[in-house]
């Protein structure tokens, strides 16, 4: 098992100590020594590197490595296994994905929800079921004070009346029970007008607005039922919604496919439209689909993340600066280890509710009858499914225990593992490779930021 991970970005050699979380910037000497240390002894390292470096330099480098090793900042051990089920094992529910609409006014080709209906009947959630879901969340929340409800679908704005009613009811219930409810919504933007936008901006802690980037890219996948592209229908609405949102959280989020492996251009297009919080995610689809991402695409995708990284860094500190979701990583603190081991907590702390009130481990499992955990009107949840998900963590997932990125990606998406291999603990290699590439970029961005801050402090 590798205890360190080293890489070079923008000519900066970076070393991550996997188990402590420490990050070091090193010179080429130490970077090269770490190719051999600790397996090789001092004499063997001299033999390997003596042609490139002086003996005293190599000794100096080794001394510094050993000093950090002694402080637990290099080659530290993984002592966290006992924490793996600490967070998810509490039995508390914190967060509900409320599928208020199993229907959609778009027919996007790559939609995991089968164009909104999740392979079932097109249906909107009624108020009784929505209110019962709110009660269910509060009843199951234990001592947890801040709870989340995410309005999802389908297209949740097709059931805006219920969204409004849930916010009003939820706020009342929260007030009476000493809780705080935070709401989020994910929308394709088609139904946004000033009235709906203002309601969202007043009540939603976060809003996710779907746009894939350039017009031709967006319209290849995101279409109406009659095949009409949607870019021109939504882009101004999304811009207006963001303009009116002020400094509150939002993400303009796209999906890239095999048809636009040059997705950095789509990110830049959205940045140039004025959006400051952007994400693009790779489509997750079986390989027999023409737009699905395959192993053979990985090299091109990694190069594209590099292009995005360089342009992103160029814009840092300028008016063009923006935030790319996957290039954010907290090196100063971040979540605790217990949280990092378990990821999203689907099937335990995070659940999805359908318009019928059925409960699933998360929105990705909705429609798969093998994963129905119960109904909001029932007292009991299927503990068997909860237990299955509780056991899905980085020490049980195939390959994760040896991976340098395990404390940042938390084992990846369980639904992707299941979708590809029928096994929650399987490893979706294509997703892993992309995640590791993004993490290298994210760590490098933070290193560059911190070095700049330090430089600025010195000049003040």
């Amino acid at each position: 098992m590798s205890r360190i991970h080293k890489f070079i970005k923008k000519d900066i050699p970076i070393v991550l100590d996997v188990n402590s979380g420490a990050v070091h910037v090193v010179d080429r000497l130490v970077f090269d020594i770490l190719d051999y240390y600790p397996e090789a002894d001092c004499g063997q390292i001299m033999d390997k590197l003596g042609g490139r470096y002086k003996t005293e330099e190599i000794e100096e480098g080794l001394e510094e490595i050993r000093e950090l090793e002694g402080k637990g900042l290099l080659f530290s051990e993984d002592r966290y296994r006992d924490l793996a089920e600490q967070v998810t094992g509490s039995g508390v529910v914190k967060s509900l994905c409320l599928n208020v609409a199993h229907d959609c006014n778009m027919q996007c080709k790559y939609c995991f929800a089968s164009q909104g209906h999740f392979k079932g009947t097109r249906r909107l959630m009624d108020k009784d079921i929505a209110f019962r879901a709110v009660d269910f969340l509060i009843e199951r929340s234990g001592d947890r004070r801040v709870l989340e409800i995410d309005f999802f679908g389908g297209e949740p704005l097709m059931n805006f009346e219920v969204v409004q009613a849930v916010v009003e009811y939820g706020n009342q219930r929260a007030k009476n029970t000493g809780k705080k409810l935070r709401y989020t919504i994910t929308t394709n933007g088609l139904l946004l007008d000033d009235s709906i936008t203002d309601f969202i901006n007043q009540n939603m802690y976060n809003v996710v607005l779907s746009l894939d980037g350039r017009r031709e890219v967006n319209d290849r996948m995101r279409r109406l039922a009659d095949g009409t592209g949607t870019y021109d229908m939504i882009v101004d609405k999304i811009r207006r919604a963001v303009d009116r949102r002020g400094d509150r959280m939002y993400f303009v989020r796209g999906t890239f496919t095999r048809c636009n492996l040059d997705f950095s251009k789509d990110v830049m297009h959205m940045a140039d439209l004025g959006f400051k919080s952007i994400s693009v995610e790779p489509v997750v689809e079986r390989e027999d689909n023409y737009y699905s991402i395959r192993e053979e695409d990985l090299e091109a995708i990694k190069q594209e993340y590099d292009r995005l990284f360089h342009e992103y860094c160029r814009r840092l500190g300028t008016p063009e600066e923006f935030e790319f979701y996957h290039f954010k990583v907290s090196l100063r603190q971040g979540p605790c280890v217990a949280r990092r081991l378990t990821g999203c907590s689907a099937g335990n702390q995070y659940l999805a509710v359908t318009p019928e009130g059925d409960i699933y481990p998360c929105h990705q499992f909705v429609g798969d009858k093998d994963f129905i955990m119960g109904n909001v009107f029932e007292k009991k949840l299927d503990r068997g499914i909860s237990e299955r998900f509780k056991g899905v963590h980085v020490y049980n997932k195939e390959n994760c225990g040896q991976c340098w990125a395990r404390f940042y990606c938390s084992g990846g998406c369980h639904a992707n593992s299941y979708k590809f291999f029928g096994d929650l603990n399987a490893c979706y290699k294509v997703g892993c490779e992309m995640e590791k590439k993004r993490l290298e970029c994210a760590i490098a961005v933070q290193v560059i930021r911190m070095l700049k801050e330090e430089q600025n402090d010195k000049t003040v």
Binding site: V15, V25, G61, E67, G72, L83, C97, S330, L331
Partner: peptide, 21 residues
């Protein structure tokens, strides 16, 4: 240190503390 600059400390050790770092 001449060859190594530590950017952040052992955040994971210290921490032992929906749909990553």
């Amino acid at each position: 240190m001449k060859h190594i600059k530590t950017i952040n400390e052992a955040t994971l050790v210290k921490s032992v503390g929906s749909c990553v770092g």
